[in-house]
């Protein structure tokens, strides 16, 4: 189900959605364009062939290297990657879905990039997207209640960004 045939099915269902795959990795993954995330997820959830009825985890990975020497050798441009881990309770198979986002919307630091929310498809995405928003700074468009979840609501910055710096002071409490 995770073989090339499945990727073809996915490409047929959402034309232009899939931009890359790696089926040889330890956990094979499929990369989709950010604009197609909602469509791909809807298809994965609803289609009887796949039936990924459970979203286990959403992870945001910040691909950013502050050291210019290391950044030159890194082999990738700074970007933000969202990783969705799906699971089918019927077929008992998992699927890894990735999508690449810019680190900041319109290259303006402080403006979180946007991607469509999947909270309407899997309710588990509700809290997971809030957590990603809170810690990594991704705005999920269409999320019913996008607030910080782990950090206080007046917290500034996104702690899991690689260039994040702990505030000097928070309500009179020393941070660094």
């Amino acid at each position: 189900m995770r073989g090339p045939a499945f990727v073809e099915l996915l490409e047929a269902a959402v034309p232009g959605g899939v931009v890359g795959t790696n089926l040889e990795a330890i956990d094979p993954w499929v990369e989709v364009v950010p604009a197609a995330v909602a469509d791909v997820c809807r298809w994965l959830h609803d289609s009887s062939e796949t039936g990924f009825d459970s979203l286990q985890c959403i992870t945001a990975v910040d691909w950013f290297e502050s050291d210019p020497k290391k950044a030159a050798k890194a082999g990738w441009d700074p970007h933000l990657e969202l990783v969705y881990h799906l699971w089918s309770t019927r077929a008992r198979v998992s699927l890894v879905l990735k999508t690449k986002l810019p680190r900041w919307k319109d290259d303006q630091p402080g403006q979180p990039p946007e991607v469509a929310s999947v909270a309407g498809i899997w309710r588990s995405a509700d809290w997971h997207e809030r957590e990603v928003y809170d810690l990594s700074g991704v705005r999920f468009v269409g999320h019913p209640d996008l607030r910080r979840i782990l950090c206080p609501e007046d917290w500034e910055g996104f702690p899991l960004r690689k260039d994040y710096e702990m505030p000097l002071e928070y309500h009179g409490i020393r941070g660094r």
Binding site: D53, S54, L55, T89, W122, R123, S124, H128
Partner: peptide, 14 residues
């Protein structure tokens, strides 16, 4: 009979 969680909801909520 308290806090009944249907299987569909349980799966959907992860």
């Amino acid at each position: 009979g308290i806090g009944v969680l249907s299987p569909e909801m349980a799966i959907n909520y992860g």
